[in-house]
Design a protein around this nucleic acid. Structure first.
Lengths: 295, 295
DNA sequence: ACCTTTATACTCATCTTGAGCATAATTTAG
DNA sequence: CTAAATTATGCTCAAGATGAGTATAAAGGT
């Protein structure tokens, strides 16, 4: 059985990060590696084009997963090589879903998400208390505090996968909950696609800190607030406006177009564009955005 | 054909980073995924144990590669899932090689390595000049400057793979050089194992900046200079002694054992140990070592 | 006793970062 | 038309991190 090539396409629309899905949001675009594919990545691109009509730009390999072994079929094991693709939604495309529909607790920009985390913390506290041993209970409590930023530890937006796996272990998501047990809000997906999505979110959140990939998600011209909202949407965290502008400005990654934004309410904002020349022309020490991790 | 599991085992011995090889240094430990393997990682661990007797600790997935398609065999394509493992050399083990034997230009702590980079820069300049077009030539020159830190750009120790690929394209390594053409010093390996090693080096150099993985390569107790030499060996770059100590100290990652180093020449140094408790106990914002990238 | 070697403690100037104040230029409500 | 609301943008300030260097301590070797 050839390995499966699986793609997580991400775009940001109306300040919401979106993921391209199939089958009513239960699947990601994917298909097997075939003999004619020139490489893994081109194979993945072909499947995405065929299934969604979308032609990809910036792509990077994410992770390779394997199903648990199946005794029935000797060689019947599914190995999936996953990719992260950053792109823009084209008008009329269907299947795009807000990624926070799958991970509502990951949106810490709104009070809803913060409340949900408090609720989760309580549920996980109960889970820690019913651990088989005291030591195990303490280990669980520590993991909860670390991944969900309790007990004075701050929220780390990159721990998307760790949080999902913790909830899975605790039986708080439909994938692992006993029948009839209460589960957290959030859509689930087929097989382990939700885990793949979590991996993609974590990688993207980490990457915007040290590479200017955020511009792959922006239109040609944009205001600084639009850029900030996009970063906040991806990171799931609010940030300080003036400092954001200062950092972005001193990175030298953008330049003014000379125009100002049309539709606007307050003072009109200047429009900027990404300076594509800087890629390759010099070391991009990071479009390291003002997303400091908490102390 | 099942995917191949391939392992890059790294240790540091006498302040030299070493990689565990087979077949006279031409191969890395590897073997196919089998039906009985519980997961990709356990399969890889089993193969390593079987081929080298080495039991692994810290492991992470690196990258998944595929050979070019082979028309002859329809399903005969090799897909390799590679892993990075950090460990320590045990006495009597054979097959460990200095990783700089494969990538001599990556060692920028010694004058030899710096001289070699100058030589490479000249050779690549010639390569840029004989480009098919002026634009292509300029693009080549820019890549050379960026990856080898020429023209005022500093040396970026994480660009191991980019440098190797550039040398490959330019035909300066035996893997790609025309027969009889002069090639750079440095051992090559079978298939694309040298590329896998380059990927591992790049990943490790990046990782020691933000996770305290360097301690996976240290013995139980060590002096601060020993720790510094180990980091320098991995990064291939020298650093400022006093500042190194300051950073390491304020990270709170280590504690004194109360003893001092035996064999020593100057003033005896205090011995330290890694505080394993801190893993998991709190956010490790990075054992971010004084390895600033050049501006 | 003096030199070499390594360890360790401090200092200082410069950047970076987080937080906030102040002002400008619009639209909207009354 | 005026005031309030809204968004943009410029600037300051303190704390902390970083890069570079000076100074002193503790050992062995000649």
């Amino acid at each position: 059985m050839p390995p499966e090539l699986i793609a997580v396409l991400i775009a940001v629309s109306d300040d919401r990060p979106m993921v391209l899905t199939l089958e009513g949001g239960r699947l990601l675009p994917s298909g097997p590696l075939e003999a004619g594919h020139r490489s893994l990545q081109t194979g993945m691109r072909l499947w995405v084009e065929q299934q969604t009509g979308h032609v990809l730009g910036h792509v990077e390999q994410l992770y390779t997963f394997a199903d648990a072994p199946v005794d029935l079929e000797p060689d019947g094991r599914r190995v999936s090589i996953s990719y992260l693709a950053l792109t823009r939604i084209r008008r009329g495309e269907r299947g795009w879903r807000d990624w926070y529909a799958y991970f509502p607790w990951e949106d810490q920009t709104a009070p809803d998400g913060r409340d949900l985390v408090l609720r989760i913390a309580r549920a996980l506290d109960a889970w820690a208390r019913c651990a088989p041993s005291a030591a195990e209970g303490e280990a669980r409590r520590q993991r909860v505090a670390l991944t969900f930023g309790q007990e004075g530890l701050g929220w780390d937006d990159e721990l998307v996968l760790q949080r999902y796996e913790l909830l899975w272990e605790a039986g708080l998501v439909p994938e692992s909950a006993p029948p009839g047990a209460p589960v957290l809000p959030g859509l689930s997906m087929a097989r382990d696609e939700r885990r793949v999505l979590a991996t993609a979110m974590a990688r993207l959140r980490a990457k915007i800190r040290y590479r200017p990939v955020i511009f792959e998600l922006m239109p040609d011209s944009f205001t600084l607030l639009h850029l900030q909202r996009t970063v906040e949407a991806v990171a799931g965290q609010p940030m300080h406006k003036q400092n954001f502008r200062r950092l972005v400005a001193q990175q030298g990654l953008i330049e003014e177009t000379g125009e100002v934004a049309p539709e606007t309410r307050g003072r009109p904002a200047r429009l900027f564009r990404f300076r594509r020349e800087v890629i390759g022309a010099r070391r991009i020490a990071g479009s390291k955005l003002p997303l400091a991790r908490p102390a």
